[in-house]
Simulated scan of single mutants.
Amino acid sequence: MYVTPPTPPVTRPVAAPVWWQVFGPGLTALIGLFMLTAIYRFDGMSEIQRDFGLSDVSLLLIGLVAYLAGAALAAPAGLLLGARFPTAVAVPAACFLLLGVALAAFAPAGGVLAIGRVLSGLGTGAAAGATVALTLKLRQLRAAIAGVFAALAVLSLVLGPVIGQLISEAVGFRVVQLAAIPLLLIALVVTGVIGLVRLSTAKRPAPPVSYGMPYPPPGPQSGGV
C-alpha cells in the first residue's frame, strides 16, 4: 500500500516592520518625554513644588529620579519586544503613562505624586524602547525616521518647561497633567489602528503543495484467470 509522506510543518518568517508602525509607540514616547520636564521651569520654583511644599531635593527625587527609574525598568522590555510585538508593547505603555498623569493630576500629597511619576516613567521607557527597536529593524527610511524622532524628542524635552510654566501660571499645574490625557487617548487609537492595519496587510505564505501521490500508481492487477 502506498503511504503519502507527511507534510513538513510550515514556519512563517517574521515580517520586517514598516516605517509607519513607529508612529504608535513614538507618539506615546514623545508625550512621555514632554511630561518628564513639564513640571519644571527655567526661572525659579515651579508651581508643583510650591503647591506641595517640596524642597529642591524632594522635587529632584519625586519629579526626576522616580520618573527615570521607571523608564530604566521598562526600556529593556521595549527594546526586546518592541520590534516583534509593537502594538502589544505600545498599548500598555500608553495605559501606564495615562494612569501616571492622572495620579499626578489628582495627587493629594507627594507620595501619590511619586507613584504617578514612576508609572509615567514605565510607560515612557517602554514606548521609547519600542520606538528604538522598531527603527533599528526598518529596511527603508531608517535614517530619516531616526532623525525625525530624535529631533522631536529633544524638542519635547525643551518645550516641556516652557509650555508647562505657561499653563501652570494660568490655571495650575494639574491642568498640565490633565492635558496629556486626550493626547494619550489619541496615541492609543493610533496604535490600535496601526496594529489592525498591519495585521490585515501581513502576507501569509500559502501552505506548500504536496507532491506525493494520494493513490498508488496504476499497474497490472494480480490474479488468475
Rank of each mutant, 00 (worst) to 15 (best):
A143S: 09
I115M: 13
I115Q: 05
A180W: 11
A187T: 05
L103A: 09
P182M: 01
T124F: 10
S200I: 04
A143I: 08
V154D: 12
R204Y: 02
L166H: 07
R142F: 03
L119F: 01
V154P: 04
K137P: 07
V118H: 06
Q165V: 05
A130C: 07
A126Q: 09
A170S: 13
V193S: 03
E169D: 12
L159G: 07
A144I: 13
G125H: 02
L166Q: 13
A206G: 14
L159E: 04
L141H: 15
V112L: 15
A187Q: 06
Q165S: 15
T124A: 12
G164N: 12
R204G: 05
A150N: 08
S120T: 02
G160T: 12
I163H: 07
K137C: 08
E169G: 14
L185G: 07
A128V: 15
R142H: 06
L178F: 07
V176N: 06
A127L: 06
P108E: 10
L159V: 01
K137F: 07
A109Q: 08
P208K: 14
G116R: 03
S210D: 14
A104R: 10
V171Y: 01
A128Q: 11
V175E: 03
Q140P: 12
G195Y: 05
R142P: 07
E169S: 08
A114G: 11
P108W: 06
G123T: 08
V118D: 03
I186Y: 08
T201F: 00
G111D: 09
G110D: 05
A143L: 07
P214T: 15
Q165E: 15
L152W: 10
R174S: 05
L152R: 03
I186V: 15
L199M: 09
I186C: 09
P161F: 08
G123K: 02
L178W: 08
A151V: 14
S210I: 07
I167T: 13
F106D: 12
R117S: 05
L136S: 00
L196S: 14
A202N: 06
Q165R: 03
L185D: 07
V158T: 13
S168K: 00
L157E: 05
G164S: 01
G160N: 04
T201Y: 10
S200F: 04
L122I: 03
V171C: 10
T191H: 07
G121N: 06
L155Y: 02
V132E: 05
L134T: 10
T124D: 10
F173V: 08
L113H: 06
F106H: 11
A109V: 09
L136H: 02
I145T: 12
A170R: 15
V193I: 13
L136V: 04
T135Y: 11
R198L: 14
P208S: 14
G123P: 08
R117H: 04
I181K: 03
P108Y: 05
L113M: 09
I163A: 09
A144C: 10
R117N: 07
P214V: 14
L183N: 00
I145E: 02
V197F: 12
Y211Q: 15
L113T: 02
G212R: 04
G123H: 05
V176L: 02
L188H: 00
A126E: 01
K137S: 15
A144F: 12
